[in-house]
Computed example of a mutant assay.
Amino acid sequence: MNNGARGVLVTGASRGIGRAVAEAFAARGDRVAVHYGNGTADAEKTLRGLSGEGHVVVQGDLADPATATRVVAEAVDGLGAVDVLVNNAALAPTADSRHAIAEVGYEDWVSIWRRAFEVNLFGSANVTWAVARHLLERSAPGSVVNVGSRGAFRGEPEHPAYGASKAALHAMGQSLAIALAPHGIAVSTVAPGFVATERQAVKLAGDEGDAVRRQSPFGRVGTPEEVAAAVVYLASPEAAWSSGTILDVNGASYLRP
C-alpha cells in the first residue's frame, strides 16, 4: 500500500464495469470497497482479484435509503476513510426490463420506471450525500464520479426509464459539482456507449452483434477497462478542474452537438 493510497467506494462492483473500475484503482495502490447488491460469489471474486491489500466488500440494495447510508458507513469503517466515490450501481437494460410504450402494460410500466429511478438516481444521490458529508466532516478534498450513459443523450426507446434515469444522474452530477467545489470536492460523469461486459456477451455473439459493433466507426464496442481508465482519470487530483464534465466514452458512436 503506498502512502498516497485513497479509500475508494465503487458501487455495483461485482462484475462488468464496476469490477474493472475496482481493479484499476487497486492497481494504483488505492484501497477499495467493493459494493454489490446481489451475487456474493461475484463480489468475492472481484475482491480476490484486486492487487494490494486493505480492500473490503460491502453489500446492500441502494434503492433503500437506510441501506445506502449504511453501505457508506461500512465502507468508511472498513477502509478508514472514503476519498473517492464511483456511482456505478444501476439497473441496466435487459430483455426482461424492456418497456417500449406501445408494448408494455401500465402496471409494468409504472413498476419499471419506479425501480429504475430508485436505483439509478435515488440510490446514487443518497450514497453521494453520505460520502459528501463524510468528506465535509473531515474537511477533506475528494472526488465523485458517476457512471452515466450515452442513452441519456440519444434516447432509449425500448428502455426509456433507463435513459431518463441516466440523464437525471448527469444533471445531478453537474448540480453537485457546483455545490461541492467550494469544499474541494470534484464531481464528474462518464457516459459510456455499448460495453462488452459479461451481461452483453450473448447479444454480441448473436445476430445483433455486428450491428452493435457498426455503431462505432472503430468497428467494435468498448471494454470495461476503457471506461475504468476514464473514471480513474476523473477521480484524480489532476482532473479537479474538469469537475462538472460529462465525458463521452463511446468510440464516436454518438456525437453530441
Rank of each mutant, 00 (worst) to 15 (best):
G7I: 00
G7E: 11
G7Y: 08
V8M: 09
V8H: 05
V8R: 06
T11L: 12
S14T: 07
G16I: 09
G18T: 08
G18P: 13
G18K: 02
V21Y: 14
E23R: 13
A24G: 10
A24C: 09
F25V: 11
A27W: 02
A27S: 14
G29Q: 08
G29H: 08
G29T: 04
D30M: 10
D30S: 09
D30C: 13
A33V: 05
V34M: 04
Y36Q: 11
N38S: 15
T40Y: 01
A41R: 10
A43T: 06
L47N: 11
G49W: 05
G49T: 10
L50K: 00
L50E: 10
S51L: 08
G52V: 14
E53D: 15
E53F: 02
E53P: 00
H55R: 02
V56Q: 02
V57H: 00
V57Q: 12
V57M: 12
D64K: 03
P65E: 00
T67H: 02
A68Y: 05
T69E: 13
V72I: 14
V72N: 14
V72Q: 15
A73L: 09
A73F: 12
A73I: 08
A73V: 10
E74G: 07
E74Q: 11
D77P: 00
G78K: 03
L79F: 06
G80M: 05
G80L: 04
L85P: 11
V86Q: 08
V86L: 13
N87C: 12
N87V: 03
N88C: 10
A89P: 06
A89D: 09
A90W: 13
L91C: 01
A92F: 05
A92V: 15
P93T: 06
P93Y: 08
D96F: 12
S97Q: 08
R98E: 15
A100E: 15
A100S: 13
A102F: 11
A102Y: 13
V104I: 15
G105L: 07
Y106I: 15
E107R: 15
D108G: 01
S111C: 02
R114S: 14
R115W: 01
R115I: 01
A116I: 04
